[in-house]
Design a protein around this nucleic acid. Structure first.
Lengths: 195, 195
DNA sequence: GTCTATAACTCGATAGAC
DNA sequence: GTCTATCGAGTTATAGAC
């Protein structure tokens, strides 16, 4: 399953053949099909793994970097920047690929992809709630978390296509500019109540 | 080629078989291969079509809707909202799908996808320049255009996966909030120089 | 639980008549 | 330029011995 996860990530689901998974992992056909009845079941197991490991792999390392809640959101995004860089833009978000490839083909896969996105989005939303009055009170944290996820996925898509960090960097810089303005607004409101 | 374009859009490149294109279009194998030496060449022709038809299909209708430059940007995005809705979230941006699916598999396709993104991005960038002092002078129009593209692609990806307009709407609403703040800042700067 | 061999099928692409 | 027939390779999945 680890081999399958890596190959699905590198090449997508359809483009990865069972034969290749068997060859890379040194497993034989009969053994794989003893545990996973179909190739799709193997993918579902991989998607479960991503849900189970989001915090360990993505959120916790970012949270450990800084005590600032907003800073933690950008630390998460910085993790993706780093990942794009070390893979030379060959790999991005493991879920985003599968989202567009598989949503129309398998309802079970689509639902597990939604589960992954919701998992990620809720983690970011929690950080945004943790930010408290560093953000204006009337800002919709839920929608903002969706926005952050969308900006990340869009930026990763563009940088993978361009084979350049520039689009991702530009997107994150604009997102940062937005958060700076939100923070400034929250700050001026706080000062006003201080008077 | 029209049939191929629709099928590639609906199901992706790999998932669309030549046999299906032939069946749907009523064309015979020999005829297709007389014009396109490979399936990939057929895709490249489709991608050329998208470059050639961006303005006619996407930009011009949005420009016709309003004289406000920023409004035109959001009219373009609204076109994608409408498209998501009428296809019941089954189809999004034709290029975004192919970007993630094909970037690793064919350098020629990747380059044509980049061409499509650049085409789109430049159109948006022009609108942002047209906005003149409705945006703060120090805002990087180029990066902002990339941001708009990324937000659109990310929002489309999420809405297709969730089978709901909500993520796209939330993303566009947050983007709108950002533009509103930029416009407010530009406005206060203009007023200051008026004094 | 794991092995090898292969069934059953679909794929992109081609040959050669017309 | 278009037709039909088909090649050869690759696909997922299974059968049946161990």
């Amino acid at each position: 399953m680890d081999t399958a996860r890596e190959l699905f990530l590198q090449k997508g689901f359809e483009a990865t053949s069972i034969a290749e998974i068997l060859r890379e992992s040194g497993v034989n056909s009969g053994s794989l099909y003893y545990f996973f009845k179909t190739k799709e079941e193997l993918l579902l197991a991989v998607l479960d793994w991503y849900v189970a490991n989001l915090y360990r792999e993505v959120i916790d390392p970012a949270v450990a970097q800084t005590k600032d809640a907003i800073g933690r959101v950008f630390a998460v995004l910085d993790g993706y920047r780093e990942y794009l860089t070390i893979t030379e833009f060959r790999q991005g978000c493991p879920i985003g690929n599968l989202a567009l490839e598989m949503s129309e083909k398998s309802e079970a896969v689509r639902e597990k992809v939604v589960l992954n996105f919701e998992n990620w989005r809720k983690a970011i939303r929690q950080l945004l709630f943790d930010a408290g009055d560093l953000l204006p009170a009337d800002v919709d944290r839920d929608a903002l978390a969706t926005f952050v996820l969308g900006v990340m996925e869009g930026g990763v898509m563009l940088s993978r296509t361009y084979r350049s960090l520039a689009p991702f960097q530009a997107s994150i810089a604009m997102l940062r500019a937005h958060f700076d303005r939100l923070a400034a607004e929250a700050n001026s409101t706080r000062n006003r109540t201080d008077c």
